[in-house]
Nucleic acid binder design. Structure first.
Lengths: 217, 217
DNA sequence: GGGTGTTCAGTGACCTTGTCACCAAACAAC
DNA sequence: GTTGTTTGGTGACAAGGTCACTGAACACCC
């Protein structure tokens, strides 16, 4: 069983294509906090993530940041695809959040795969589709959704099965594209209601139900 | 000279591909205000615009709207590409703003073209690239840019060579993803400064320089 | 012409969010 | 312990969004 089977869309590749892909790609490992691509640093390979996550974010002229989306294990970093073929520079930045293992497919191999395999084409276009949808959601949230609701959603999302979130107010602000003070105020309000407890760098969810209720409203 | 030459990225297609494209595609005309795609209405063809513009916008649950981008003559409506191959539904909506003439490429032909021609692949991926970049810009503007600046930019953009903008406050609000009242207040402030004159449905730019200055700040 | 309904814009009160300047507590390093 | 850095708290104010309501401009009809 090769890494290919970790990718839904690739499991049905014909053997010839499969072998070509295995031959032409190589597995790379990057440490946490590596900038994988960014302004003036366009990637030479399409990356398929095996382990770790990549955070894609945008920084404004004034230095404020916002997280656009994350690439998880089993997904491809399609933003780079566009660079691969269209040679365009993005203002966004991709950062490995954890140590990350990925399959790197060189430009020429990528082009040949898109040409030769309908399955690979579907894989690529599906990935694009998902990213664009993600961006639509981000736009809608920023433009129309109240911040307390978005913050509640983010807390639920970040704590997973745990009951604590390890993050600073500043980092949460970047996730939501807002200012640190605003997050601090909202968290204080949550605390006042007895929903959370805070210490420096950690937020403990006490009343997950209430937070969840707000998140869904 | 065929319509193909209206598209930068397609002018260098080899003759065989060119002929295939001409044979398989057909030219369609849709009247103004037609919904070309939308939730539950996925398109069967890739559209390349010959004349007119298509406005792509998103509507929130609460009914508020925001314009995401526009497709102009000479561009392709790639959002549909994703639907073509990935069969995914979008929450966004594409509307012909004016009477629109376009080349329609059926799904199967699109797939074959992507497979057979590196030039066509580049054309498609470049278009994707541009749209994603557009969305990044929208996100940055909404999240970080002041509304008076964005409104000034929009006025300059909409008036073109004329000195009047034909639009209601409500439509401007949708362009910027804000509320009508906010636009009204800002325009009043512009008027108070002597930058514009307003009548129902029209805004006349009097001091274009000052508006431009604000737009660039 | 006058009457009627619709679209568009103006208004004030109020709430949420963003900004600025500054302070204090927690932590890290020496 | 002393010192510097990171993190979070605070208050005042500005900007933007919401709500409820008003009136003006326009289209249409007799």
């Amino acid at each position: 069983m090769s890494w290919i089977d970790q990718f839904q869309g690739l499991s049905r590749l014909p053997d010839a294509i499969r072998n070509y892909l295995l031959e032409e790609s190589k597995i790379v490992t990057v440490p946490a906090n590596t900038v994988i691509f960014g302004p003036g640093k366009s990637p030479e390979n399409l990356l398929l993530l095996l382990e770790g996550t990549v955070r894609v974010q945008q920084t404004s002229d004034a230095g404020r940041e916002i997280v656009l989306y994350r690439v998880h294990a089993g997904e491809s970093c399609v933003l780079t695809t566009a660079c691969l073929l269209a040679y365009e520079d993005y203002s966004a930045e991709g950062i490995a959040e954890t140590q990350t293992r990925a399959v790197a497919i060189p430009r020429a191999a990528f082009d040949k795969l898109v040409s030769d395999s309908i399955e690979f084409r579907q894989f690529v276009f599906t990935a694009y589709s998902k990213r664009i949808t993600d961006l639509f959601v981000v736009i809608e949230e920023i433009a129309f959704r109240r911040l307390d609701i978005r913050l509640a959603q983010k807390l639920i999302e970040l704590c997973g099965a745990e009951d604590t979130v390890l993050s600073t107010h500043q980092k949460l602000a970047v996730e939501l594209g807002t200012a640190r003070e605003v997050v601090s105020r909202q968290l204080q309000e949550f605390q006042r209601r007895g929903w959370i407890e805070q210490t420096r760098g950690t937020i403990r969810l006490i009343d997950r139900d209430e937070i969840g209720k707000l998140a869904k409203s």
